[in-house]
């Protein structure tokens, strides 16, 4: 226990200021308090996100996982990934939508309470990426469910993911 406490104290807080969610991708630093207040004003509560990997190469998942590390500390902003679509305000979808994932993606989307925000993640989610449309792939996420915001990148780095999430929230203002 002593070692754990020592390590925690030695490293201190590493969380960095979060970016704004501007549509023009300007990098501006916003105070976490303001983001929390904004989430509260728009949603009336913390933001909950359900992720569906609809066929990605797992690169986008690496960056989504990175959002929860101490530097980005997404939970500290009042944003949480949840296990059930019934608990989720937002659906994030990675990958081109493989034909085998169409039903699972549609059912997840249907299970969410309205109003539902959908964010397509990565070049594949935005356009189908390298994989495009084929016997096995339906291409971009918007081919299968309605999309509010699409975040480009292969994979999009964590700050871009955070910007995309905040942009989607503001679209509901």
């Amino acid at each position: 226990m002593w070692h754990i406490l020592k390590q925690i104290v030695k490293n201190g807080l590493r969380t960095e200021p979060a970016p704004q969610g501007n549509d023009d991708w300007r990098v501006e630093r916003a105070e976490p308090e303001r983001i929390r207040a904004e989430l509260l004003a728009i949603l009336g509560r913390a933001l909950t996100i359900r992720l569906v990997d609809a066929g990605s190469c797992n690169g986008c998942e690496l960056e989504l996982n990175a959002l929860t590390n101490p530097y980005y500390n997404i939970e500290g902003l009042g944003i949480k990934f949840v296990a059930s679509p019934r608990h989720a305000d937002m659906l994030m979808v990675t990958g081109p939508v493989s034909r085998h994932m169409v039903v699972a993606l549609q059912r997840t989307w249907q299970a969410m309470p309205a109003p539902k925000l959908v964010v397509a993640v990565g070049d594949c989610g935005c356009t189908g990426g390298l994989f495009g449309e084929s016997y096995a792939s339906c291409g971009k996420v918007a081919n299968v469910i309605p999309v509010d915001v699409a975040i480009p990148g292969c994979p999009p780095p964590p700050l871009d993911l955070l910007r995309g999430i905040l942009t989607a929230i503001r679209s509901r203002k």
Binding site: G55, S98, H100, L130, G132, S134, Y135, S137
Partner: peptide, 11 residues
């Protein structure tokens, strides 16, 4: 498994 099959080898 096979849910993420996206036709890579054909591509």
């Amino acid at each position: 498994l096979g849910y993420t099959h996206k036709g890579i080898e054909k591509l």
